[in-house]
Design a protein around this nucleic acid. Structure first.
Length: 119
DNA sequence: GGGCTGACCTACT
DNA sequence: CAGTAGGCCAGCC
């Protein structure tokens, strides 16, 4: 897979991100794995940063494995991402999202049952 | 080529 | 919970 052309790797990453349902989040590592690039979480961040704006990628649905936004707290990108997520119903508790509620394990439930109501 | 940086991750102290 | 270490790899000096 290391011989895969760079453009194709970006394409795969973008595709995975594009398919994250609204109100759900995936970690960089998870996206990398789903794109067939295990262990290359860093590349996901790069791919997102270089994604053409016209793609309208839901980049905000990608956060780190800690369930937190990877931009510096309080920075503009940080607030932007957080606003977008909260507008989709993703709740932040003490600066992090509950991956048990919005993470990959909940994608199916989310599709079947709709937005998370509460506990 | 070497060195450094980064929207990262896991495992281990 | 905080820190460290090693792994990962594209891009830019």
């Amino acid at each position: 897979m290391t011989d895969t052309p760079r453009d194709e790797r970006y394409q795969r990453i973008w595709q995975v991100v594009a398919e994250i349902p609204e109100g759900c989040v995936l970690s960089y590592g998870e996206v990398a794995r789903l794109a067939g690039l295990p262990g290359r979480a860093r590349m996901v961040g790069q791919a997102l940063g270089r994604a053409p704006v016209r793609m309208d990628l839901p980049w905000h649905r990608v956060i780190n494995a800690q369930g937190r936004i990877s931009f510096k707290r309080g920075s503009r990108p940080y607030r932007k991402q957080r606003d977008l997520l909260e507008s989709e119903g993703v709740l932040f508790v003490d600066g992090s999202v509950d991956l048990d509620h919005y993470g990959p394990g909940q994608v199916l439930d989310r599709l079947l049952w709709g937005p998370i109501q509460s506990d």
